[in-house]
Write a protein that binds this DNA or RNA. Structure first.
Lengths: 122, 122
DNA sequence: GTCGTACTTCGATATTCGTCGAACATCGAA
DNA sequence: TTCGATGTTCGACGAATATCGAAGTACGAC
């Protein structure tokens, strides 16, 4: 289907385990990190370049959306996603921040523009 | 088997996804919260009172241990577990703290002493 | 209207995970 | 040494999950 307007949960109704489960998957964590590392606050669905099928990507984005982690916006037949980091900070203070700050093996080698070199290098 | 000395991972080798996955399960999150809410820093294995089989509990404790979240110590035939919160703070600054601080539906109604009333009430 | 693009949903599959009871291993006590 | 207590491991099971390709749906362009 075309990107029909998706339901976005009220963050007050999102449970911590849901958020943790959403983040506890390498591909999804990578997506979150990529969105956080961008200069623009939005990323075009089409430009999310990962070695997975598009249907799988759609699946992961849905899980992140249901966990309150990202916002998707429709523009014609296209879709743009962005982190709900401000809201998440209100609901789970410090969580997203420390997840993003942490250094581990899940990197952000996602081409097609938007990756900040300065962050990637630190 | 009796509580043979278990392997505890070096926290530098523990990945964020491993920790998140360990925490992203209601029973395990409950165990972590219970350990954090205790006055004594240790809890006897035997006194962890949850509505699950003992083999299941053993399984969950192993996952938490492998994620670097808890430490288990053997004393004769008994076992005592405690949070590795200080070390986790060094590896993933702020993570455990904000997970414990967050308010959601996973409570800590675990009897047999050790639950702090002041925390439970806040 | 017809076609193509852009996502989403469906159905199928393989893997992982939570759970249990039973069997096992280790220690202390009798 | 025999017994009981204490955890752990094993084997099995159903449920959940990550993945894909194919089919479907909505929109813009022509």
């Amino acid at each position: 289907m075309a990107p029909r307007e998706h339901p976005h949960p009220d963050l007050h109704e999102v449970e911590l385990v849901t958020v943790l489960a959403a983040l506890a998957e390498p591909t999804r964590l990578r997506i979150v990190r990529m969105l956080a590392a961008m200069e623009e606050r939005e990323r075009a669905w089409k430009d999310i370049d990962l070695p997975i099928a598009r249907s799988t990507l759609s699946h992961h984005l849905k899980i992140l959306r249901n966990a309150g982690l990202l916002w998707s916006r429709t523009e014609g037949t296209r879709c743009f996603v962005s982190l709900r980091d401000k809201e998440m900070e209100g609901r789970f203070p410090g969580l997203l921040e420390c997840v993003l700050a942490c250094q581990d093996s899940v990197d952000v080698p996602m081409a097609k523009g938007g990756v900040r070199e300065d962050r990637a290098a630190s």
